[in-house]
Amino acid sequence: MDQLQRMQLIEHQSRAFLEGVIENINDQWVFFDEESDVATMLEHYVDQEIEIYLHHKWIKGILEEDGRFTHKTETIFLLDKMKLRIRKQIVFSLDMLLDELEDEAFLQFINTLNTLEFSIYDCIFSHNHLSFLETTANKKGVNILIFDNGEIVLSVHHHFHYENEKKDRFEFTLSTGKRLIIDKMCK
């Protein structure tokens, strides 16, 4: 699995976007998240890639200052009540962990998470102990991850033992009491 395939799998996760509408209030653009009704100043996303809903499709572009949106070589001016999507950020330590996992462990982790109706974008806490062992030859420990999909909370303990071979064990525990354990060993 190459880096592009990993990125595509990550990009197509559910709940990857904040979605809502914008309003111009007192000459300032405000984004209203439709899921949480939280209002955010749109200026926080200037120079970032966002998507606008125009002509019945989502269009990617860069948000500019003063309510401008650049799509390829075209500049579009934002309008009141326009629908926007802003890609959520993956928790930094989880992003680092995903990069460190071997392909098989990465796929098993993502697929199990998705099967349990969670997305990597549902992560609300991540402690990546592996990142603290960068200079250590033999690595052993536990990473702790907490996910919340809005209905259920999930705790994941990732036990790793990296010596001659890499051993990954994922223990998934839902707030309902359901548990799953996955062991992966790679040479």
Results as ranks from 00 to 15, higher is better:
68 R>M: 08
121 Y>N: 13
114 N>Q: 14
74 E>V: 06
23 E>M: 02
159 H>W: 04
97 L>F: 13
44 H>E: 09
41 M>C: 10
106 F>S: 05
169 R>D: 07
145 L>T: 04
144 I>L: 12
156 V>E: 14
56 H>Q: 15
85 R>S: 10
80 D>L: 00
83 K>R: 14
55 H>D: 11
137 A>T: 14
78 L>Y: 08
12 H>V: 13
185 M>Q: 15
84 L>W: 03
26 N>T: 07
69 F>Q: 04
45 Y>N: 12
25 I>N: 04
65 E>W: 03
39 A>R: 14
102 E>D: 14
130 L>P: 05
37 D>G: 06
78 L>D: 00
24 N>H: 08
170 F>D: 14
125 F>H: 11
106 F>A: 04
169 R>E: 12
12 H>D: 10
90 I>E: 03
156 V>Y: 11
114 N>H: 03
92 F>M: 13
155 S>Q: 12
161 H>E: 05
104 E>Y: 04
18 L>Y: 11
69 F>V: 01
54 L>R: 08
147 F>N: 00
85 R>I: 00
167 K>I: 10
52 I>H: 01
168 D>G: 00
41 M>G: 08
182 I>S: 03
62 I>M: 09
119 S>N: 06
96 M>N: 13
104 E>W: 01
106 F>E: 14
55 H>K: 11
112 T>L: 02
103 D>H: 09
119 S>W: 09
165 E>L: 13
102 E>T: 12
85 R>Q: 08
46 V>G: 03
187 K>C: 05
170 F>R: 07
149 N>I: 09
68 R>T: 08
49 E>C: 08
5 Q>E: 09
33 D>G: 00
146 I>K: 13
113 L>E: 00
156 V>D: 06
139 K>L: 07
170 F>S: 12
48 Q>N: 15
166 K>T: 11
126 S>A: 15
109 F>L: 15
55 H>T: 02
22 I>H: 10
8 Q>M: 00
83 K>D: 14
110 I>W: 13
176 T>E: 10
13 Q>M: 11
50 I>V: 11
149 N>D: 06
44 H>Q: 12
51 E>W: 03
70 T>E: 01
167 K>R: 13
79 L>W: 02
70 T>S: 00
33 D>I: 00
158 H>M: 06
20 G>K: 02
105 A>W: 05
149 N>K: 08
16 A>Q: 10
9 L>F: 04
98 L>T: 05
69 F>Y: 06
41 M>A: 13
35 E>I: 05
55 H>P: 02
17 F>Q: 08
62 I>T: 15
176 T>F: 02
118 F>H: 03
48 Q>I: 00
103 D>G: 13
69 F>G: 05
173 T>D: 03
95 D>G: 09
47 D>E: 15
111 N>W: 01
11 E>L: 14
112 T>E: 08
56 H>P: 01
10 I>W: 08
128 N>R: 06
183 D>Y: 06
76 I>F: 02
36 S>M: 04
140 K>H: 15
148 D>C: 02
19 E>N: 06
120 I>N: 05
116 L>G: 11
